[in-house]
Design a protein around this nucleic acid. Structure first.
Lengths: 256, 256
DNA sequence: CGTTTACTTGAACGAGCTCAAGTGAGGTGG
DNA sequence: CCACCTCACTTGAGCTCGTTCAAGTAAACG
């Protein structure tokens, strides 16, 4: 089950054996968390980097009056807590969504690794760029899409990301968010999430029972969401249900 | 008028004389653009970096059905077009909002600069992190705030950013967006922008005539927007109208 | 077996949208 | 210099998507 980070970074550039091994070393010191526990990375000066091994977490921000916005969804293989320079993160927090196993990597260990394998710096920078691209897509999602489209888009994004780290079985995956958390991620109310998910169900696009999400018709879901996954910069050969690939095919989106 | 980039990066860490000079060198080859002209940075492989000298631009993304979301506002001193590694940007575009002067920096010149002055790498990475932090704040803005709050927040952000590069006069600055463009940036309709701006006016928070934006009551605007500018990571000693500083004071936000 | 947490449903309300028409300022050509 | 065009802003009216409030069901857990 190791090598999850090497696998992810290997998407960006070919990694050597020693590079992969050094990355795998980082996962040694693991810690377990229950659901809804904060990963306090920002305590004082000794900020550390955190690698999600198993389970899920999210980054969020809260307004003074209590409104909450989820900013990032972390899945296994993701790093949270800035790797490269400092600059305090402000009032953002990271919390687990499900029970999770994480590897806490001291800043120095990380710095030493990058020192020894300069190519990893590039790979990490790529990962940071992808994170930024995901942020942009979320801005588009929340700013322009309707509730129905937004939910469909998030499901597409999550499913594709999970399948890139081998966490899908056929057209099924785990949805690590409650409807209330989906609401906080998409800028909608929990009630509206509920009704709109039912709409997606009755349109035959998905099946959602508990945490188990099944994509019944990926092309239709993708087209409803106007989802074009190229911003995720995943390997081109990634196979998705129905033989679809990441880019929006000519027939599905631009063809209206 | 030179040194606008050095000034910005100098916010993050102290720059040496030679470092500043090298940065200023980059601005030599300038190009003029009218309003609403595309800065095509993505033509083929020879992608270059673009430094805004004067005027304004924005990055945006368009959905297949024409809906547009503005993702980033560029002001003088900003770099657009990724500086560090590659990864194609996808279907994002950059267009000027006003007439603008830009310096087009070939990728190699940029790489050489970073090679010669390693500390600049850190400074550029900081700038990238701030850009990411701004993206996050926009997600919160669009996802959680009402139209009224959203507009107020954008005005706060823009005013503070402009004042950091000396482009404000007292409590006045230029607003480089039409109401239609504001709509595309905030995920609202142009009509609603219009009505809500009038609300801000009649509440005595701002005065907006043409492109001239005057902040009549910064503390009130900041509090209406729940604006806490620390995510911009600007120098602490930045003086704003009414003697306010960047962080939300205890009386304005968290005090509720 | 009672409590909690997530999901579901109904009904009324409201923020923000669309459509449509009208005003005003700047620019161009006759 | 005026006529005309365009583009930004403004205003009105009706409607819809999504919200809030409130209550009820269902599964998980100690």
């Amino acid at each position: 089950m190791g090598g999850i980070l090497a696998r992810k970074l290997g998407n960006f550039l070919e990694l050597s054996g020693p590079e992969r091994e050094s990355l795998n070393e980082l996962g040694r010191q693991q810690r377990h968390h229950g659901a809804r526990e904060h990963l306090s990375l920002e305590n004082g000066l000794s900020r550390s980097v955190c690698l999600i091994i198993e389970g899920n977490a999210c980054r969020y921000k809260i307004l003074p009056d209590g409104r909450r916005q989820i900013l990032t969804l972390f899945i296994p293989g993701d790093l949270c807590g800035r790797c490269l320079p400092d600059l305090d993160l402000g009032d953002e927090s990271v919390v687990t969504l499900t029970a999770a196993t994480v590897a806490v990597i001291p800043r120095q260990a990380f710095a030493a690794l990058v020192e020894e394998h300069p190519r990893l710096t590039r790979a990490l920078a790529c990962a940071a760029l992808v994170e930024e691209a995901v942020h942009r897509e979320w801005i588009v999602n929340i700013g322009q899409r309707t509730g129905y489209e937004r939910i469909a888009h998030l499901f597409c994004e999550l499913f594709v990301r999970l399948s890139a780290v081998g966490l899908t079985q056929g057209n099924r995956c785990e949805l690590p968010l409650t409807q209330g958390e989906l609401a906080d991620a998409l800028g909608l109310s929990a009630v509206h999430i509920n009704r709109t998910v039912q709409q997606l169900r009755s349109d035959g696009l998905i099946c959602l029972r508990g945490r188990e999400l099944t994509i019944l018709d990926f092309p239709a879901l993708q087209s409803a969401a106007m989802f074009d996954g190229s911003y995720l910069h995943l390997p081109k050969n990634l196979t998705l249900p129905h033989g679809r690939n990441l880019e929006a095919g000519p027939g599905s989106l631009h063809g209206l």
